[in-house]
């Protein structure tokens, strides 16, 4: 009896609170443009060398934060490594093992030792970059806290994909020789005309790998951040505390999903790099 009363009281209070939230006017209506969140303004102006403007902007800061975190992790690991692992070391070993056996070991047939540092480095770089994109850092306009990810910028991911692209062909040429590598793009058993066609198609697909690798990562991170931004901003647009409450609850779910996406995208980027490099090393004839 007593319990039921308490329950009813809670329910009433909750309903009243919801009604109050629904009735009282929200804050001032603010203009919000999601695209604005992804615009880059130089923070420190630096002289440009030729066409290359080396000004420090938000994306560069995020890149440096990523690198700093990785360097600190590496140094801490190198200093504190023990045969019997601590929890931290065990966690690092697990992620390392994922890169070693889950990505490189399961996909590449040869050249595992040679190419492991690059692929694992890419995995960790993209992973950390994606994850710190979900941490509010004070690099938004007027040093406000905001979400941004270096990998939500097409040029960053394009540079990363370019590395994979160049390393793929470098690996293929070094292993198979220049002419044999390009000849290996098409099956030698095909008739000559068809063979040339296949060569062209393969070249196009190689270029598209570059595009898809960079755009996949970029678009995933951008879409995630855009949805998060829209959820946060809709509270301002609706001008209602009730809507704000519901939207924040939804944004928590999206945030959790974004953590998953950040991990999956880093995994896919690394595993596709491994697939491409492995494919260039062991060509099918």
């Amino acid at each position: 009896m007593n319990r039921r009363l308490v329950l009813v009281a809670y329910l009433l209070v909750g309903l009243v609170a919801l009604a109050v939230l629904a009735i009282i006017p929200g804050g001032e209506r603010e203009e919000f443009d999601v695209a604005h969140e992804f615009e880059l303004q130089p923070i420190v102006e630096l002289p440009s060398i030729g066409p290359v403007d080396l000004s420090i902007n938000k994306a560069v800061v995020y890149l440096w934060v990523t690198t700093a975190i990785l360097v600190v992790l590496a140094v801490v690991i190198a200093r504190s490594i023990k045969p019997v692992p601590s929890r931290f070391q065990y966690m690092m070993e697990t992620i390392y093992d994922l890169a070693r056996n889950g990505i490189v070991g399961s996909v590449m047939k040869s050249g595992q030792v040679t190419w492991f540092p690059y692929i694992a480095g890419a995995f960790f770089f993209v992973l950390v970059s994606n994850l710190i994109g979900l941490v509010p850092l004070p690099f938004a306009e007027h040093n406000q806290f905001g979400f941004y990810a270096a990998t939500a910028n097409l040029y960053v991911t394009l540079a990363l994909a370019l590395c994979t692209f160049l390393f793929t062909h470098y690996a293929g040429i070094r292993k198979n020789g220049f002419f044999r590598y390009f000849a290996g793009w098409a099956p030698s058993s095909a008739p000559p005309v068809l063979r040339q066609l296949i060569l062209v198609i393969h070249a196009v697909s190689e270029a598209f790998r570059l595009v898809s690798l960079s755009v996949r990562l970029f678009a995933n991170m951008l879409a995630g951040h855009a949805i998060l931004g829209v959820f946060f901003a809709m509270a301002l647009i609706f001008q209602s505390y009730l809507a704000a409450l519901a939207l924040q609850m939804g944004s928590v779910l999206i945030y959790l999903f974004e953590i998953f996406v950040a991990f999956i995208q880093a995994f896919i980027f690394a595993i596709l790099s491994a697939v491409y490099i492995g494919g260039a090393l062991d060509q099918e004839h």
Partner: peptide, 11 residues
């Protein structure tokens, strides 16, 4: 300009 710079920074 900015994009080239960003790519260089990325690398």
């Amino acid at each position: 300009n900015t994009e080239w710079g960003l790519m260089v920074w990325t690398l």
